[in-house]
């Protein structure tokens, strides 16, 4: 992004990014909405499937586009620090957006619904491959069977350093604990990689 940078003073605040992943219906929108200080924005990201020339108005009519709601939340953590949460669209057909959304992210929360654990395989694989620190948060839906963290760890074949925690995505205190657990995991992961 060279040319666009200004000579103006550096940023007054630091913006950091955390991702919320998990299958469809795993509670991503709920979690972001529970803790965000901005109204849970569901910005419509318009995806174009064909590129057209600039100002090619004639091309507009034939262009194939679709929209996806993007979960976005913000938590101000001080005068000069803001934490941004972005949901990764769970459906596979939007997975090409993951690279863009995860660029520069500190880490990720993978929400798991024990009734459909398979739905979070894709996110777990993705963060493992990208070596992005993540934690698994088991979202406790009413009536869902109780699994303990160890069972989930085995089912997802998680590395021992990936924390597994329980959460209620509707409850701000619970979400806060999940984010704290993630930041601790990120610190631990950095300490490990600086030792090697």
């Amino acid at each position: 992004m060279g040319s666009a940078h200004s000579d103006s003073p550096a940023a007054l605040f630091i913006a950091q990014k955390i991702l919320i992943a998990g299958g469809f219906g795993s509670g991503k929108t709920t979690l972001v909405g529970a803790i965000s200080e901005v109204r849970p924005l569901r910005t419509e990201e318009v995806l174009t499937t064909a590129s057209i020339g600039l100002d090619d108005l004639a091309g507009v009519a034939s262009k194939k586009t679709t929209t996806v709601a993007l979960d976005f939340g913000r938590i101000t953590l001080g005068q000069s620090l803001s934490l941004y949460l972005f949901g990764l669209p769970g459906q596979e057909r939007f997975s090409f957006m993951w690279d863009e959304l995860s660029y520069g992210a500190l880490g990720a929360v993978v929400l798991a619904d024990v009734r459909r654990l398979g739905d979070c395989f894709a996110s777990v694989n993705y963060f493992e491959t990208r070596r992005l620190p993540f934690i698994v948060a088991i979202n406790c839906f009413d009536g869902a069977p109780r699994y303990d963290a160890q069972e989930v760890r085995v089912a997802l074949d998680l590395a021992p350093d990936v924390p597994v925690t329980l959460c209620d995505a509707r409850d701000v205190a619970s979400v806060k604990q999940v984010l704290i657990a993630l930041v601790q995991a990120i610190s631990a992961s950095r300490a490990r990689s600086s030792r090697t």
């Binding site: 953590l77 934490l83 930041v183 610190s187």
Partner: peptide, 19 residues
């Protein structure tokens, strides 16, 4: 250099705990 990555993480942690 102005704020190390670890400082930022610590700030995030403290900020979250204080919410």
């Amino acid at each position: 250099s102005e704020r190390s990555g670890n400082d930022v993480l610590r700030e995030i942690l403290n900020g979250l705990r204080a919410l």
